[in-house]
Structure formats: C-alpha cells, structure tokens
C-alpha cells in the first residue's frame, strides 16, 4: 500500500547523515523498545508484515517527525491495543504514575 513510508525516489529529505562512530542503540529507551517489540513479536500473535503495517499506519506528519524506534513503539502499541493486551488508556495511566510515583511513608 502506498503511504508516507514509501519514500523511494522522493526529494527534499536533505543529506544522508552518516556517523561512523555510531552505537547500535542511541539511547536506553531504544534498547527497551527494540527488545519489547521482538519479545512480543515472538509470542506469534502477529507476524512481521502486520508489524510493519501497524507502523505504516502512523499519521504521515508523525511518521516524518519521529525517529525509527518511535515508529516501532507506535506499531507495538497499536497491535497490542487491537488485541486487548494493553490499551492506550492503561499506558497513559501508567505514565502518570511514573511521572509522580505514589508517596510512601518512611518507616
């Protein structure tokens, strides 16, 4: 299917930025996003084509403005929500909890 991901031949993306000293992962969250995606994929509830299609359905402006593993995250969240494994609401509640962890009285 045609879409924003279908970049072959397009103009205007600027120079190719190559960093010879680049690490495999740029940031810790990328490591985790990668591993979560592979581990969930290994459960067999979806295949590689379904994963890609889930990434490709990202809104075009978001697709272009976000990084590679953000595409992966979007795809993973989408596939899990579709199957009732984890909902967007659950993720957002957990984010709020992580942002302000519940206070515990010091004993």
């Amino acid at each position: 299917m045609n879409g924003m991901h279908d970049l072959g031949g397009m103009d205007g993306f600027g120079p190719i930025d190559r960093n010879p000293e680049e690490a495999v992962f740029q940031q810790e969250w990328e490591r985790r996003a990668f591993a979560l995606t592979l581990a969930m994929g290994a459960r067999g509830e979806w295949n590689l084509d379904m994963s890609r299609y889930a990434r490709e359905r990202m809104p075009p402006s978001d697709y272009l403005l976000s990084s590679y593993y953000e595409h992966w995250l979007h795809g993973l969240e989408h596939l899990m929500a579709e199957r009732g494994l984890v909902s967007a609401a659950e993720i957002s509640v957990r984010e709020d909890e992580l942002r302000s962890p519940p206070h515990h009285e010091a004993s």
């Binding site: 969250w29 985790r32 403005l65 953000e70 984890v86 659950e90 993720i91 957990r94």
Partner: peptide, 22 residues
C-alpha cells in the same frame, strides 16, 4: 509527540506485570 522515554517505561512495566514478557 509523546515522550518515548516515559512511554517505553510504562509499556515495559505493564507487560512485565501482565506476564506478557520476561
């Protein structure tokens, strides 16, 4: 766009809690 750092943390903790990933 939402902050991926927090999103991944949230996702990982939920998936471990639900026993979906080890």
């Amino acid at each position: 766009l939402p902050d991926p750092v927090l999103r991944v943390k949230a996702l990982e903790s939920l998936l471990i809690e639900k026993g979906l990933v080890d």
